[in-house]
């Protein structure tokens, strides 16, 4: 349980890194969204998010749908492979909705807003590690002690 919380925080931190990369591809280089998603997916640093971004890019190109729709489709399908909680997915469900629909200047604001959302989720995840993580660890120790006492 405790390691799951740590994985959740790592996944969110990774997504913030990906967002910075995406910002460079979109606002700096002006690469079309489907290609930017594919490029991000190919990066080794993308970790658990790699397949999701790659698949989003492929679906966008093949089915001619926008980033919001592709993101929803892919995350719905691959939700189990990412260690996030339901509340995280609710915040992330609109990710991509505004991507690609305006000029570079506006896309920067959109990505900044997404980054703020993710940082907020990451903070929550860090707090959860502190509180719930300690609780789970203590519970584990106590359970272990209880088992030892029973055997004695």
């Amino acid at each position: 349980m405790s390691s799951r919380l740590a994985e959740r925080q790592r996944a969110l931190a990774k997504l913030i890194e990906i967002l910075l990369n995406l910002r460079n591809q979109i606002c700096g280089l002006g690469i079309p969204l489907f290609l930017a998603f594919e490029n991000v997916g190919k990066e080794p640093i993308s970790g658990v998010w790699s397949d999701i971004f790659t698949e989003c890019g492929v679906i966008m190109q093949q089915q001619h749908i926008d980033a919001g729709e592709a993101w929803k489709m892919v995350t719905r399908k691959n939700r189990d492979s990412i260690p996030l909680e339901e509340s995280d997915w609710q915040v992330l469900s609109d990710f991509g909705e505004m991507l690609g629909k305006s000029d570079r200047e506006n896309q920067e604001s959109v990505l900044d807003l997404e980054k703020e959302n993710l940082e907020m989720l990451e903070r929550r995840a860090a707090e959860a590690i502190k509180t719930k993580g300690r609780l789970y660890r203590n519970l584990g120790i106590l359970s272990g002690a209880a088992v030892v006492i029973l055997f004695l």
Binding site: I26, C27, L33
Partner: peptide
């Protein structure tokens, strides 16, 4: 229009 821009208006601005 969105399809012509490959759903990426910023890339064609």
């Amino acid at each position: 229009f969105l399809l012509l821009c490959e759903q990426s208006i910023y890339a064609y601005q």
